[in-house]
Amino acid sequence: MTVMTLIQAVNDALKHEMRRDDRVVVFGEDVGVKGGVFLATEGLQAEFGKDRCFDTPLSECGIIGTAVGMALYGLRPIPEIQFLDFIYPAFDQIVSEAAKMRYRSGGEYTCPMVIRSPYGGGIKGGHYHSQSAEAYFCHTPGLKVVIPSTPADAKGLLIASIRDEDPVMFLEPKRIYRTLKQEVPEGEHVVPIGKGRIVREGKDATVIAYGAMVGICEQAAELAAKEGRSVEIVDPRTLVPLDEPLILDSVRKTGRCVVVYEAPRTCGYGAELAAIVAEKAIEYLEGPIVRVAGFDTPFPYTLDNLYMPDARRVLRGIQKTFQW
């Protein structure tokens, strides 16, 4: 075990897989000599050379378009999109090409690649360095969507994503890149895609959260404990495919459900979580499913602390499920 930040765990996973499989290539804007704007790819070019870790021209559609070609040819590309806010020029390549390749070719061609991108707010990034765009990708058949919330998960899930046979959106909560340090297994460490985790056990209410919101919900659970309420936190870890049994078992146990996500509220991934719980566990619910989310606004700069769900807002959400 080594104590690492989340960004160090990402770097460790990339190195581990690049050593293990020479088909793995890493590229994107500033990922080579500089090692990435967040240093996720630090040291990769020095160790693996410029053929396996390289800077690209400043074109997201070119980065993902060529990544599709590389994956078709047999490489395991890991393109980095510097901020998820900049991914939209590549949206067509992801949605129309990478996601549909296996299906549209009857399984003849596949597109195993991991699109890594820092996402989410709380770093004073304004409109264009803060967005949580996960729902767009969850709504696209053919993609898997993975979001770690701890350094150990970041490593284990990234390794699993790189070994996956299909395109994976690997979204890294940049707000907790360096705020959280944790012991991470050295060497081989795989966290399977499609398996969530119970972050904290409880019996009175279930809070579902992913990414940087998991830590916020842990704070909220502490506040709720002071009010005598025992909160269980479920982190799905992969939004697609979703570990439904884990979530439903928890909600059936507690009878209350709060869904927390920092993306705009309307049609956010939390809406899907709420729908699943309503569809499959409504008879266990003691109160309404409550969403605690961002606002239906562009991401603000100065008032980002008001936009982002915090522990008090999550606590209020938990309280609502008891007021019904």
């Binding site: 060529t66 078709l72 040819y73």
Partner: peptide, 13 residues
């Protein structure tokens, strides 16, 4: 860009 990416991959390999 798929064609170009496949060609880049061929060169890398």
């Amino acid at each position: 860009s798929h064609a170009v990416g496949a060609a880049m991959a061929a060169r890398i390999r």
